[in-house]
Design a protein around this nucleic acid. Structure first.
Length: 503
RNA sequence: GGCCCCAUGGACUAGUGGUUAGGUCACCACCCUUUCAAGGUGGUAGCACGGGUUCAAAUCCCGUUGGGGUCACCA
């Protein structure tokens, strides 16, 4: 019972099921996971659903899903099981009331019958006087240093009046603790409110439930956002009331909006899912978020880390103290790094379904079997790999590899067409049609040989050829693009295009 | 407002008394080049301010300023 945490490192991520996983939450989960794994310990997910009104249906599943997609797999949770369950607080109500009884008996907690209106009025008054709003202890019993007679409290209880249970914060003591990222921190108990422990609906508050659960689940390290720093003294006090050894704590710097306020919706996407839906890969997201507040240090200049590498290298020592702005530009750059390095086979299996979807929507003049072949897709990937921002752009941004262009970029046409372009182009199409070897090298040689005696530069034809076959004025090496497209497709597109674009 | 935390270029950061203050993203220029990317080279830009301590401060101390968090029967 005496809760001295064992040697084993156990960390937890304790979200409340109120919506999708926030990127700030993702980072907190990641750091908890990385720390546990780097120490050979356990990572636990506990659902903190003590606020019935804010509960969102299905949120806990969504939270767990997103974690798993990014590779953060809990050792224990309401889905994965474990020996310290239940892992959902609403299923642990009996536990909390038992411990509440104990504090009541120890005279470290008391019943409070103050109404919401009274509290609000009191708060306003204190604010007006420039004081910190705190409970005025109207219901603090005489025997605990207050003014309320025992008889009055008993009477209210017998009446069945609604009540909450508050902790009795000791007067004028200093509460100190050591934060693993911030160092020693000290609070004066006079600034700590008599926090509600049990709400009138019989549910515990976060503060009470999390302290009890962290102890019972043998959590060795609490790693959470900085927004919890100022409630730490309450938690410390509770551990003391129970005679429990508090876990080690680390308060992480916040993730910030571009204006440096706490990262929130309104200023862009904040749900991890939003980024995944946009096409960012879990690896890039994890990599990016890991570097927001942590770095390997020692003059290390690496930027790209896999989850496994992070597990190996992560330490709390290297977590910074200042908040960091969530800057999407760098995430985009990281995503590109991952796309450049990803094996073609992986990309193929990711994009093939997307292509098939597109092909189902629209007819293509090309050979469908060839388009969906690994060989063809592999060639497209190598051509587009360095030009694409997201995996799905191997399809969307590379549409001309699968469908004939329906329109031609007007600006590009205007820029690249001369009076005699169509005339020369027409002659060249005939030449191309008679070219047996449709390899990039040979197309290039053919084009150059064709153009030289006519005193034109290769670019005179290159650009129109690109526009007519792809519809746009940019893209991969023209010769390689034509080779991959294949002679039949190229000739068809050119003949058709020259009719439309010709002046 | 009280309490707490924080402070290196636009963003992420290295740096723990002696460095021409380093790297990445972004930006700019040049190179490469048929375009777009990618790549290469170079560049713009920073220790919030003021006092100390010290032979010597981005680094240590104090103050100021600035920013943030938190003050719920929300987490």
């Amino acid at each position: 019972m005496q809760g001295t945490p064992g040697q084993r490192v156990r960390t937890r991520f304790a979200p409340s099921p109120t919506g999708h996983l926030h990127v700030g939450g993702l980072r907190t989960a990641l750091y908890n996971y990385l720390y546990a794994k780097s120490m050979g310990g356990d990572f636990i997910v506990r659902i903190e659903d003590t606020d019935q009104s804010r509960k969102v249906e299905g949120a806990e599943q969504s939270l767990l899903n997103t974690l798993e997609v990014t590779g953060i797999v809990p050792d224990e949770s309401f889905i994965h099981g474990g020996n310290f369950g239940p892992y959902v607080q609403s299923e642990r109500l009996g536990i909390y009331s038992k411990y509440c009884e104990q504090l009541l008996e120890q005279k470290q907690a008391y019943y409070c019958f103050s109404s919401a209106e009274e509290l609000e009025e009191n708060r306003k008054l204190q604010m007006k006087q420039g004081m910190q709003p705190k409970y005025d202890r109207t219901w603090l019993p005489e025997e605990m240093g207050g003014n309320m007679p025992e008889s009055e409290i008993r009477r209210k209880r017998e009446e069945g009046a609604p009540f909450v249970v508050r902790m009795r914060v000791p007067d004028y003591i200093s509460i100190m603790f050591d934060d693993m990222v911030r160092g020693p921190i000290e609070f004066d108990s006079a600034t700590v409110d008599d926090q509600v422990l049990m709400k009138s609906d019989g549910f515990p508050t976060y503060h009470f439930a999390s302290v009890i659960d962290d102890h019972l689940m043998e959590i060795s390290h609490v790693i959470r956002g900085e927004e919890w720093l100022s409630s730490m003294p309450k938690h410390i006090l509770l551990y003391e009331f129970f005679g429990w050894e508090p876990p080690k704590v680390a308060h992480l710097p916040l993730l910030l909006n571009p204006d440096r306020s706490k990262l929130s919706k309104r200023q862009g996407d904040v749900a991890a899912e939003d980024f995944i839906n946009k096409g960012y890969s879990p690896e890039a997201i994890i990599n990016f978020v890991a570097l927001l507040g942590w770095n390997e240090g020692e003059g290390c200049e690496r930027e790209v880390y896999s989850l496994d590498e992070l597990k190996e290298k992560f330490t709390l020592r290297r977590v910074g103290k200042a908040g960091s702005v969530f800057n999407v530009e760098k995430l985009g750059w990281l995503e590109k790094q991952y796309i450049k390095a990803r094996p073609a086979s992986e990309i193929i299996s990711a994009i093939k379904p997307l292509l098939q979807e597109e092909l189902a929507k629209k007819e293509t003049g090309m050979d469908v079997d060839r388009l969906v072949s690994d060989d063809y897709l592999g060639q497209v990937i190598e051509l587009m790999r360095e030009r694409v921002n997201f995996e799905h752009e191997f399809i969307s941004f590379s549409r001309y590899f699968y469908f004939d262009p329906e329109e031609f970029d007007e600006k590009a046409v205007e820029k690249r067409w001369a009076d005699d372009t169509n005339e020369v182009l027409g002659e060249f199409i005939d030449v191309l049609e008679n070219t047996a070897d449709f390899s990039a090298d040979n197309i290039e040689a053919t084009l150059k040989a064709f153009v030289a005696p006519r005193e034109k530069k290769p670019a005179f034809l290159i650009h129109p050829l690109r526009i007519l076959t792809s519809g746009v004025g940019f893209g991969p090496s023209l010769y390689h693009m034509l080779e991959v497209l294949g002679k039949e497709t190229v000739i068809r597109r050119l003949r058709k295009g020259i009719e439309v674009v010709g002046k």
